[in-house]
Computed example of a mutant assay.
Amino acid sequence: MDRPLLGKIALVTGASRGIGRAIAERLARDGADIAIHYGSSRLDAEALAQLCQGLGVRTAVIQADLTDLSDQGGAVRLFAETVRALGVPDIVVNNAGTGRFGPVSDITADDLANVLAVNAAAPLLMAREAARQMRPGGRIINIGSVITDMPAAKRAVYAASKGAVHAMTGVLAQELGPLGITINTVAPGVTNTDRFKVGDASRVPEITSRTALGRIGEPADIAAVVAWLAGPDAAWITGEVIRASGGLRGL
């Protein structure tokens, strides 16, 4: 079996469920040791660790509150604990995300702070730690969203946070390039996660009709793009936002 990431260490945030779980499993199948971050779903994270260990890789399960932006908490502690458990990561996937959806008139200060902290500030802090410690050849991969190209009502805070991720990707590519580190963002379209099933499952026929490939995405579809960016064939790619939507046109 081809294992292009054998010997690499990957840190995946928000890895216990959904897209993050699929990414962690795919990177493990490709040979990478995996640091599995979770916020509250400890049992799911531990089950994923057992699966990955069965694939012959080392794992670490690490809890961290990514709304804590201090120099002793959240993203900073997560990176440090990954280093202690497995070594300096070669691959960092900023997948953890949250959203507060509703009319802009109902947005609270806490909504804004929490979404921007997890979705935008935490990836920036992870990039800072990577710049300080990651070796040449390192890969940072953010998870963005097609919401930045396909505006939809009641998603202002989420769109603002993902727009920040897309913007910082190009800027950080210029800073990290001389260090031999690439950074890219994958922007999924509608994807079949638990969050989607709870909130938007009734829209499957409508969304499918707007998607060139005739279905909604699966977490494994996104994981495949991330795995390519993490692998040797993507060494010349940096500063890019790659839309992984199956040809979705409009939300």
Rank of each mutant, 00 (worst) to 15 (best):
S41L: 04
A64I: 10
A156T: 15
A75S: 13
A10Q: 02
A235M: 12
G73K: 09
T67P: 02
A96W: 11
M126W: 03
A120C: 14
V83T: 15
V226S: 06
A224I: 02
Q133I: 02
V226Q: 10
E240C: 12
L176M: 10
I143Y: 05
T193P: 05
I216E: 03
D65M: 08
G137T: 08
L229P: 01
N142M: 10
I107M: 11
G7Q: 09
E129P: 03
V186W: 03
P4V: 02
G246C: 12
E46I: 00
V93L: 12
V76I: 15
E206F: 07
L27M: 04
S145R: 09
W228D: 01
G246P: 07
G31P: 01
G246T: 05
T98F: 09
P232L: 09
P188F: 08
A127V: 10
I34D: 00
L229G: 04
V225E: 01
T148R: 12
Y158L: 11
Q63D: 03
T108R: 11
G18T: 01
L86R: 06
W228C: 04
T59R: 06
A96C: 12
G247E: 13
G138Q: 07
A10I: 02
I23Q: 03
M1E: 10
G231L: 07
G250A: 13
L172I: 07
E240M: 13
T185F: 06
V12N: 03
A230S: 14
G217K: 04
L112D: 01
R84M: 11
L116C: 13
A64P: 06
A223C: 11
P136A: 13
G239H: 09
I237S: 07
G177H: 08
L48I: 02
L124N: 03
A173D: 08
D200M: 14
A22Q: 03
A212Y: 11
G214C: 10
T185A: 15
P151Q: 14
V171H: 10
V92E: 08
I107D: 06
A223F: 04
I207V: 15
G56P: 07
A80I: 04
P136G: 05
T208K: 15
Q72F: 05
G247I: 12
M1Y: 03
S105F: 10
L6E: 15
G39N: 07
M168Y: 13
D194K: 14
L176S: 06
R26E: 06
A164F: 12
R17G: 00
A130G: 08
A47D: 10
H166D: 14
R128D: 07
Q53P: 01
G239L: 05
M168R: 08
K8F: 00
A24Y: 00
N94K: 11
L229A: 05
D33H: 10
A131F: 07
E240K: 14
N114Q: 14
N114M: 13
I222T: 02
R132S: 10
